[in-house]
Amino acid sequence: MTRSPDERPTLEDVAAFAGVSRSTASRALNGDANVSTRAKDAVLTAARDLGYSPNQAARSLVTRRTGAVAVVLSEPEELVLGDPYRIAVMRAAYRELAAAGSQMILMFNDGREDHARTLNFLEGGHVDGALVFAPHRSDPLPRALRLLRLPIVFGGPAGNLSRGVYVVDFDNSDGARQAVEHLLRSGRRRIATVAGPQDQTAAVHRLAGWRETLSAAGLDPAGLSEEADFTLDGGRAAMARLLERVPDLDGVFVASDLMAAGALRALSAAGRRVPGDVAVIGFDDHPALAATMDPPLTTLHQDPASQVQHMVATLQALLAGEAVRPQRQVLPVSMTVRESA
Rank of each mutant, 00 (worst) to 15 (best):
E226D: 12
S215H: 15
L232I: 06
S215A: 14
A240P: 00
L214R: 01
A238L: 02
R211G: 00
D257N: 05
V246F: 02
L258K: 07
S225H: 13
T231D: 10
R236Q: 10
E212Y: 09
S256C: 03
A228R: 09
E244A: 15
A222N: 08
R245W: 06
D248C: 00
D248R: 14
D220K: 06
D250V: 02
G218W: 09
S256R: 08
E226P: 03
L258V: 05
R245L: 01
L224T: 00
D248K: 13
P247D: 10
G218L: 04
R241Y: 08
A217H: 13
L242H: 07
L219S: 10
G251E: 05
A263Y: 14
R241P: 00
R236M: 00
L224P: 03
G262T: 03
G251L: 06
A217F: 14
A261T: 14
L243F: 05
S225R: 11
E244Q: 15
R211E: 08
L214H: 05
R265L: 11
M239V: 06
A237K: 14
A216R: 14
L214A: 02
D233V: 03
F230L: 15
F230D: 06
M259L: 03
D233K: 13
A217D: 12
E226Q: 11
A216Y: 11
D250W: 11
D250K: 08
G218D: 06
A240V: 02
L258F: 04
A216C: 02
A217E: 03
E227R: 12
S256V: 08
L242D: 01
G251M: 09
D257M: 13
A237Y: 13
R241D: 04
M239L: 00
L243I: 02
D229A: 07
G235V: 05
L224M: 07
A261I: 09
D257V: 03
R241G: 00
P247T: 06
V254F: 13
R236K: 12
S215F: 15
D257T: 04
R241E: 12
D220P: 03
A255T: 09
G223P: 02
R236F: 09
R211S: 10
A217S: 12
R241I: 03
L232R: 15
F253W: 08
D220Q: 09
R236H: 05
P221C: 08
E212W: 06
A255S: 05
L219M: 06
E212L: 12
G218N: 11
T213I: 12
A217C: 04
A237M: 13
E212T: 04
G251H: 10
G251R: 06
L219K: 08
A216H: 09
A222E: 11
F253D: 00
G235Q: 07
D248Q: 14
S225P: 01
P221E: 02
G218S: 07
R265S: 02
L242Q: 03
G262F: 04
D229N: 13
M259K: 12
A261C: 10
R211P: 01
A255Q: 10
L264N: 07
